[in-house]
Amino acid sequence: MAFKGAIVVDTEKCKGCGLCVANCPTQTIALAKKVNSKGYNYAYMEHPDNCTGCGNCATVCPDTVITVYRVKI
């Protein structure tokens, strides 16, 4: 069974620690070149097509800013 996923990052609350980037098994996530109002390079889906919605990013996120969605395909 295959899954397709997507994440929504609360970019204003993201502190750009990069733990989600390091723990993403499909290299979906990267830190943005832009910064949020606190000056952090927030996380975003650089390669949304890769996302399987595994939830690893949200699991390790210390600030709980990632919401994960997933569908079976």
């Binding site: 996923g5 929504v8 620690c17 210390p62 709980t64 969605y69």
Partner: peptide
Amino acid sequence: IIKPENLVYGKSKVLTDTVMHYCPGCSHG
């Protein structure tokens, strides 16, 4: 994909909306 019925991981309702004062990447969070 981003629809309520497809939600698999969201923020717990027991957490408040206050931004934590911890440093980026802190295990406390």
